[in-house]
Amino acid sequence: MSEDHILLERPQAAPGVQVIRFNRPDKKNAITDAMYRSLIDALTAANADADIRVITFLGTPGCFSAGNDMADFLGFAMSGGKGRLAAADFLHTLVGVEKPIVSGVDGLAIGIGTTLNLHCDLTLASSRSLFKTPFVDLALVPEAASSLLVPRIAGHQRAFALLAAGESFTAEQALAAGLIWKIVPETELEAETLKTAAHLASKPPQALKIARDLVRGDIDAIRKRIDEEIVHFAAQLQSAEARAAFEAFMRR
């Protein structure tokens, strides 16, 4: 059940913090369509709850998320692209969250496991974390407005290396590129992430919201880029080269 794969937690040690945890370790926390729907529900509820001041994403030991579930993508491609990708709805919901978002990354962060963090206000990562977006290797294109945000943050060369060349970034490289805020030991990651989230939750909420809005700037361009990327993404999902790439992946 997707409910088991997305766990919601309210840690006593972090008042005002809603933890959303990827919990599908046997599949390296790959995100299915049903999981996206659960994520949308969780974000919507947290955004509307005045008692929740900060949202925090966590994974399981050694894996944040391996990205989108390939079987779901292959099914979409085989269906001729019928229906709407739940990932698109999730991304728009994520962008629309009005509260600070913190993430703690330990281990693998692949595809949306990397790009989700672009929409977080603070990302902590363990030293063993690895960030990779193999979009082109799967005959796909960047998503989550990463084609807009990564060049802004890291410059063209690093953005091209990550998003087009599919190069892996270590935690140190991600920190140097400005993609994450802090590196902590893996044994301390979760506690430090919750401590960071609780610290934010203790601040005056309206002042923090205004500050966050000013730092983020206009999000219309982000929403527009998400939609532009999704058009190309959906088209590529139905391409012969993507189908071949997915089938090869599924045979591994």
Rank of each mutant, 00 (worst) to 15 (best):
S147F: 02
R216G: 00
F22L: 08
H92T: 06
T114G: 07
K224P: 02
E188Q: 15
G96V: 07
A66V: 02
R53K: 15
S239D: 10
E143Q: 10
S38F: 00
A244Y: 05
L122I: 15
P204L: 06
E98D: 14
F160Q: 14
P25G: 03
I183A: 04
T93I: 04
A234K: 14
L200S: 03
R223H: 15
G107D: 04
K203I: 06
E9Q: 14
S147G: 14
V95K: 06
L237E: 03
V141G: 01
L200Q: 09
L200I: 13
R216I: 14
W181L: 07
A221F: 07
R152I: 13
N68Q: 12
H119R: 06
S168A: 13
A34I: 03
A14E: 06
A50L: 12
S129E: 06
P151N: 12
T170R: 05
A235D: 13
G62N: 08
L189G: 10
L130S: 13
E190D: 02
P134N: 09
T133L: 00
A87S: 12
I183D: 06
S38N: 11
E241L: 11
A161L: 12
S65D: 09
Q206K: 10
E188P: 02
P15Q: 03
S147V: 10
V215T: 11
I222G: 08
R225Q: 15
I230G: 01
D220V: 06
A14P: 11
A50E: 15
N47F: 08
A34G: 13
T123P: 03
R225Y: 03
E9V: 15
L194C: 07
E143Y: 04
T187F: 03
I52P: 08
P15S: 06
L175T: 10
D41P: 01
A235F: 01
M70P: 08
S168W: 02
V231D: 14
M78P: 00
S2E: 09
A207R: 15
E98M: 08
E167V: 09
A154F: 07
N47C: 10
H119D: 04
R53G: 05
G113M: 00
A171W: 02
A171Y: 04
A234E: 14
K182M: 06
T114D: 00
S129L: 05
A77I: 00
R252L: 05
A221K: 08
L214E: 12
G111V: 00
L91Q: 09
P100W: 05
D69T: 05
S127Q: 11
L39W: 02
R128T: 11
L7E: 10
F135D: 09
C63M: 08
A145S: 15
A154N: 12
T196I: 00
F169T: 01
A198K: 08
E3I: 13
D106C: 04
A244D: 11
L140F: 05
S127D: 15
L138G: 01
A242W: 08
A30E: 13
A139F: 06
L179G: 05
S103M: 11
A109E: 09
A244H: 12
A198R: 09
H232G: 11
T93Y: 04
G155N: 11
G111H: 07
